[in-house]
């Protein structure tokens, strides 16, 4: 391990579109999936990550390096995460949340989920559909029935997008 040899161990990660990335082991093991591979001794050669494309992996590695460079200070880590996610569009966030899920990185997963939830917060159904491109496959009757089922819920929700 890095601490024992004195030189930092580097891992090579391979995305599903065959891009190769070098990353310090100490940063990469933020991913429980990668940590398990390292602990099982499977990290000797190249670690293939079949569910993550190169663009997303590059972004995740930026995050890994950034967050692991911050000492144990939850406030600073949080502000790094906020800054890191601030300029990401939903497409990227969706890729990130899938990657974080696959790599088992709970801190990134929580942050991206919170970011997506933040977008949905206090928005009308119509707004959320448009924003995320969700196709409404209900018939008007079906939709009315769903609304009717939890009528009380819909009465209380205030949205701030349409006025």
């Amino acid at each position: 391990m890095a601490a024992e040899t004195g030189t930092p161990t580097t891992l090579t990660l391979k995305s599903n579109d065959d891009e190769l990335f070098s990353v310090a082991e100490s940063a990469a093991i933020l991913s429980v999936t990668i940590r398990n591979m390292v602990e099982d001794g499977c990290a000797g050669g190249v670690i293939p990550l079949d569910n993550v494309d190169g663009k997303t992996l590059a972004s995740v590695i930026t995050y890994m390096n950034g967050i692991s460079a911050i000492p144990a200070d939850e406030e600073k880590k949080k502000s790094y995460r906020d800054k890191f996610l601030s300029d990401k569009d939903f497409e990227t966030l969706a890729d990130m949340v899938l990657a974080a899920n696959y790599l088992n990185m709970s801190c990134l997963m929580d942050a991206v989920s919170a970011k997506i939830a933040q977008v949905m917060e206090k928005k009308s159904v119509g707004w959320v559909r448009r924003k995320f491109g969700i196709e409404n496959d209900y018939t008007p009757e079906e939709e009315a029935a769903v609304k009717e089922e939890h009528k009380w819920t819909f009465e209380g929700v205030e949205t701030d997008d349409d006025n």
């Binding site: 989920s113 939830a117 949905m120 969700i134 079906e142 939890h150 929700v157």
Partner: peptide, 26 residues
């Protein structure tokens, strides 16, 4: 997105808002 990821996202909304998402689509 997989159910468990969506559940995680909805858990961060108020419960009422989370229930409202049932109208988005089937």
């Amino acid at each position: 997105l997989a159910d468990d990821i969506l559940v995680m996202i909805l858990s961060l909304l108020s419960f009422k808002e989370a229930v409202c998402t049932s109208v988005l689509s089937s």
